[in-house]
Nucleic acid binder design. Sequence first.
RNA 1: GGGGACGUAGUUCAGUUGGUUAGAACGCUGCCCUGUCACGGCAGAGGUCGCUAGUUCGAGUCUCGUCGUCCCCGCCA
Length: 584
Amino acid sequence: MKRTNYCGALRNSDAGRNVVIMGWVARRRDLGNLLFLDIRDRAGIVQVVFNRETQPEAHAKAEQARSEFVVAVEGKVILRGKSNPELATGEIEVLATRLHILNNAKTPPFQIEDDINAAEETRLRYRYLDLRRPKPHANLALRHKILLEIRKTMDEMGFLEVETPMLTRSTPEGARDYLVPSRVHHGQFYALPQSPQIFKQILMIGGLDRYFQIVKCFRDEDLRADRQPEFTQLDVEMSFPRQEDIFAVIESVMVRACAVAGVKADTPFPHMLYKDAIRKYGSDKPDMRFGMELHEVTDAFPAEAKEKLQIVGNVFAFAAPGGATYSRKQLDELTEKAKAVGARGAYFVKLAPEGITSTVEKLIGADNVKKLTAACGAKTGDLVVAVSAKDEIKGTEAAALVAGQLRLQLGEALNLVDKSKWKFLWLTGFPLFEWSENDKTWVSAQHPFTGIVDEDLEKLETAPWEVRSKGYDLVLNGVELGSGSIRIHRQDIQERLFKALGLSEEQIRRRFGFFVDALTYGTPPHGGIALGLDRVVMLLAGEKSIREVIAFGKTTAAVDLMAESPSTVDKEQLDQLGIAIKEK
RNA sequence: GGGGACGUAGUUCAGUUGGUUAGAACGCUGCCCUGUCACGGCAGAGGUCGCUAGUUCGAGUCUCGUCGUCCCCGCCA
């Protein structure tokens, strides 16, 4: 028997046709001599009718059918007397003449419906059942369409998709590597790529000119809602680019990817300097869908108050519209949250219609309370939130970062985030180095091939913290989609940077030997970017976790509950690799 | 590595101050039902209260530990 139609795709126009549909039993409604089966396939659900009087054989078989049985139905599409507006196929039904039960099924651990709220643990363990639900299915379909559109767009712009090795070399920088032991070379390991960074730069040296790849990357770090140990990037590199050329390419790709999801993205994407993002939004990935800009208000705290409140460094504040209704208890909770994200203290001014009250008026005086509210442009009904940081962090505004976190929380809590907006943003002007509290030294803020702003080159040796990189980040609605840079293509500058990072000749050879060699054979100016596609699809699908747009996601402990990986392996396998397990 | 939330029937949850036989809904099983569509009606089955140790006359409930899931900080050049 050959399937003639997707059952979920049948419509009025099919009325009168004899069809064969195949799918799963979504629901059975047995009225005795009349029995209905809702049959589900990729396209949706259709109602099938079995009549004992006219088709006793088919009816008898339908009585055996249970949830998630796999069936084939032969029948005639007919218009219904009374339609069901809830279903896309609601105006027709299939009058069954024959039913084949192709396979039976155990009762599923949860019902295959969109509005069922099974625990994520159960959904991941039985992912094949979860995927039968329309929503996960639609998310994967959207992912496919977005990736397809990206490939088309990149191809049209002259980019070649080139595959790079999955078994490559470990680099000590950056994230922890996933290691793969070599059988042929005992005691040696491949690493799965954290990104194809070096390979794509070598492709530019190789004259490919325009490269892209939709590629899996691997990082052995702790997980989050938007971080999985393996994730998919759109990796791009081009030769002889100006920064604006790369931006234009990515804007074209993103506009078309968004269009696939019915989202209109405006170009060009606005730009913002890193330092402005920190000072105005307290974040290196500001969510621009709402206001509540930060203001530095250190002046409103006299020396005496600072001492009492143990304020170190600056104080940052913002006005939260509608926050004046917050109760004492809510403010206490807010203070707790602030402390949890690194605040020394949080200070509030309520601009209620019946008067202005503040938790710090006694300490700073009425004039300074006014100064505070004026600085934030607060209006009646607002809550002014000011915070100081627990510790000073070299080279950044620690208080602004704390205020930025509260801004996000309050923006969400006070319903100020306009979910219909799609706010892309380019961030530029990143510092080349950042202070490492662990190592007590300046370390590369991005990978060590990131270009250096020309006028800052001379400060490389004298004032490294002032050196800006040619790096940039793409942000959408407060989510970092990716980052890239114009690279260093001259070996003399590369050497100066390595030196500034305190790397010895020997360390450079050991870590980047082959790449440093390649740089000396006529490297063109080049640059690129990598975007996290799981996050792109997540946002466009309206999901809060990238697990919702990944077919087989892992838990926060990096476990695949369905495949039960990772797992132990046979001793023989370990012996071949020359590996012994050390007991903990 | 640290903080928080959660873990009770197949599923989602309720469970009082520690007290008799641990409940509900959905799902499941059987029977009845010719226009249902979250069908309806009747009857029924289904529990290692994550695991472990302890406190107690008595633990789903309290305590220690442990395992698992989620969120956050650190981490993610």
